Structures are given as C-alpha cells and as structure tokens.
Simulated assay, not measured.
Amino acid sequence: MDLNILNLASALARHASARQQVISENVANADTPGYRARDIRAFGELVDTGPAFEAKRTRPGHVAFGSTINGFEPELSAGFGAETPNGNSVSLEDQMMRGAEVQQAHGLAIGAYSKSLAILRSVVATR
C-alpha cells in the first residue's frame, strides 16, 4: 500500500490546523482598528509546492526563521466590502464561513487517515 495517502492526510490536517489558527486570530481582532484579515492559500494550491520552508533548529541558540504556522504562510485576505471606516477588514460572517470550511477539511483528513490505518491494520492482521 502506498503510504503517500497518510502523508497527504497528515498535511491536510496540518493545513486545517494552521488555517483555523489564522481565522481565530482574525476573529479575535475583529474590532482592532487597522487590522487586516489574513488567510492561508487553499490546500489544493499548496499540494504541488508543499508547505513554506522552515529551518530546523538543532540547538537552543539557533534562530528560528521561515514560516510560522505549521509551515503554511498566511496572506492578507478579506471579503469584498468587509473593510470598515477604521481600516479593519475582518468580516465575522466571512470568518465563520471559512471556519466551517476548515472543519470539513479537518474531518476529511482525519477520516482518510483513520481509514488508511484501518486498512493497514487489516493487512498486517491477515499475515
């Protein structure tokens, strides 16, 4: 069995987690003047390129650099007409819709991962 499905499901779960973190930061700053809503590119767009580079720290004195949220880089992203007079671009309705998308993606990732592990267990049990 090709284990790439497990890697793909794991990457989708990490993507959903990172996106949920960005969405929660947007919601937390919904009333902050000048705050700009952010989001992470769709998982499908990132599959070929992989997550953003993040350097590995092998000693405590090393400086971390690269991406900051599970290897995925957030970008500015606001719904059309969401900007308020104080410069804030967070629309709570838009963020709730994005949160629902994240919940579905995470459920898909966990389901694929669980089913793949069940198949592997059944193969091992029959040998």
Score class of each variant (00 low, 15 high):
P85N: 02
A82E: 08
E101Y: 01
Q21E: 15
S10C: 00
V123H: 04
R57N: 11
V47P: 05
A42M: 09
G34E: 00
V27H: 09
E83S: 04
A42L: 09
A78L: 11
T68K: 10
S116H: 08
A118Y: 00
G50I: 06
M97V: 12
D39K: 12
G71A: 02
S89V: 07
V63M: 14
M1I: 13
V102K: 04
L108D: 08
L117H: 01
P85W: 01
N88Q: 05
K115T: 08
R121I: 08
S10I: 09
A28S: 12
I5C: 01
V90E: 01
P85F: 10
S89E: 06
G71Q: 07
L120N: 07
F65P: 03
A105I: 02
R38H: 11
R57T: 12
G107I: 01
I5E: 14
Y113P: 04
M96Q: 10
G34M: 02
R121H: 09
I40N: 06
N70Y: 07
P51K: 05
N26S: 05
V22G: 03
Q104D: 03
I110P: 03
A30L: 04
Q20V: 14
L120E: 13
T68D: 11
A9D: 03
N29V: 12
V90G: 03
S89Y: 02
I110M: 09
L108H: 14
V47N: 00
R57P: 03
V90M: 02
K115Q: 08
N70S: 04
A112M: 14
F80I: 12
I23E: 07
L12R: 10
R14E: 04
Q104K: 11
S114D: 11
R121K: 14
I23G: 07
F43D: 02
R14V: 00
I110E: 03
A82W: 10
L76D: 11
E54G: 07
N70C: 01
T84W: 04
P74W: 10
A42W: 08
P33G: 08
A42I: 09
I40F: 09
P74K: 06
V63Q: 13
I40W: 08
E25I: 05
